[in-house]
């Protein structure tokens, strides 16, 4: 029971990160492999505000979100849009985007190493124990989970109700027909990318309250987010959340019962099963 709840708490935060990546890949069609670095940068920001200004990470996210939004928007417009324009096929854009975002991720790691060094970063924030169903959990994990649920919920509503949200979902389904019905695809693709980046950075700030980060851990989070997105189905918000919770629970099980060093191996096991049996995602329909 304790493992299950810890797993769900972790999964909630994973859902937030994966949601960021899914917005970027599903809507703006850029497989952003620098996603994990944005997360780590978000975590560093929370760490810095906490240690330097004792600003609570829950408040930091209100500064972080707009900053990350603008940074990601600039990355999209300046660096990625030229690739979208020059690509002659979906395949070529995919390869270009993969190489470019790898490049960006290494550059980001390099910059973070140069400014913060290679040390691990962690801080104690809201460590006070909370008792739930006769087991104790750290308050920070619960708070991160609650924040993640609120943000995921808001995003879900926004995507389903608002005009911009619906347009973004339309692009995910069919960019060409979206253009025909008068949706400004380039603008909204940039918006989706920026929004995805902001969500990821906020996820990083939340995760940093209970996980230790260092400049080069980003890729692990990228991988986990990718596994979740593929498992949940590209562009599928509901699937992403279910997949994230599943991964959170599985990881916690493996860490507690076998070895904490095997969490990525566990994520991989899930990934392989998905690739073999449901490559279209948990809820996706098989296409011929």
């Amino acid at each position: 029971m304790g493992i299950l709840i810890t797993g769900l708490l972790l999964g909630g935060t994973y859902a937030l990160i994966a949601m960021g990546l899914n917005l970027q890949y599903g809507m703006s069609r850029i497989m952003n492999l620098a996603n994990g670095e944005i997360l780590v940068a978000g975590g560093f920001a929370a760490f810095w505000f906490w240690t330097a200004g004792s600003l609570s990470p829950l408040l930091t996210i209100f500064i972080l979100a707009p900053v990350a939004f603008v940074v990601n928007w600039l990355i999209y417009v300046i660096i990625l849009r030229p690739l979208v324009k020059r690509a002659r096929s979906r395949g070529q854009l995919e390869v270009d985007a993969i190489l470019t975002t790898f490049g960006l991720s290494f550059v980001a790691v390099g910059i973070m190493l140069a400014t913060f060094g290679g040390d691990y970063f962690s801080y104690s924030y809201l460590l006070s124990p909370v008792e739930l169903w006769s087991e104790t959990y750290a308050l920070n994990r619960i708070l991160a989970f609650v924040a993640a649920v609120i943000i995921c919920g808001a995003l879900y509503l926004w995507l389903n109700i608002s005009r911009a949200g619906m347009s973004i979902r339309a692009i995910a389904v069919s960019p060409d027909s979206s253009r025909l019905v008068g949706i400004d695809v380039p603008k909204l693709a940039a918006l989706a990318f920026a929004l995805g980046g902001a969500v990821t950075a906020v996820g990083g700030a939340l995760i940093s309250t209970f996980l230790t980060l260092d400049a080069s851990t980003g890729v692990i989070f990228t991988l986990k987010a990718l596994v979740i997105v593929i498992m949940g189905g590209v562009g599928d918000v509901r699937g992403t959340i279910v997949a994230a919770l599943l991964l959170g629970v599985l990881e916690t099980f493996v860490a507690r019962l076998i070895d904490p060093g095997l969490t990525l191996a566990a994520a991989y096991l899930l990934f392989i099963l998905i690739l073999l049996f449901r490559p279209q995602g948990l809820f996706g329909r098989r296409q011929s």
Partner: peptide, 17 residues
């Protein structure tokens, strides 16, 4: 020695662009 990652990153960008 700490800037090899940066070198990798820039090389990727140079290749693409």
């Amino acid at each position: 020695p700490n800037q090899t990652t940066l070198l990798l990153g820039l090389s990727f960008l140079i290749i693409v662009y």
